[in-house]
């Protein structure tokens, strides 16, 4: 699979990334080389291989059910863009 200049322009717009005119060819080429690598990987036969979710030979550690976190609301809300009455404010969402 290869992608064209127009695909890169569209992706850049969707991802809100500015790619300059002089960079657009180089970007298209490097992404295409990654896709070539993916094609190579996909050629491998994996029918008998169990999907590996994690490379570690370990199991999940569990913690005791005791409260260990203090109330740090003030610290967290200092760096929030907008707060009121202890709530974080976000642009209105309604389902």
């Amino acid at each position: 699979m290869t992608i064209e200049r127009a695909d890169i322009e569209k992706l850049a717009k969707l991802a809100q990334i500015g790619i300059t005119e002089e960079n657009i060819v180089a970007t298209t080429n490097s992404i295409n080389s990654v896709l070539t690598l993916v094609d190579q990987l996909q050629a491998a036969d994996t029918t008998a291989v169990e999907p590996m979710a994690n490379p570690l030979d370990a199991t999940q550690r569990l913690r005791a059910d005791t409260v260990s976190e203090a109330n740090c609301r003030e610290n967290f809300q200092n760096i929030a863009p907008a707060v009121a009455d202890g709530l974080y404010l976000v642009p209105r969402v309604i389902e």
């Binding site: 709530l87 404010l89 642009p91 209105r92 969402v93």
Partner: peptide, 13 residues
């Protein structure tokens, strides 16, 4: 999410 009282904003707890 609390949708009232915040003048065009939603409050998140």
């Amino acid at each position: 999410s609390l949708h009232e009282d915040f003048d065009g904003m939603s409050g998140i707890d």
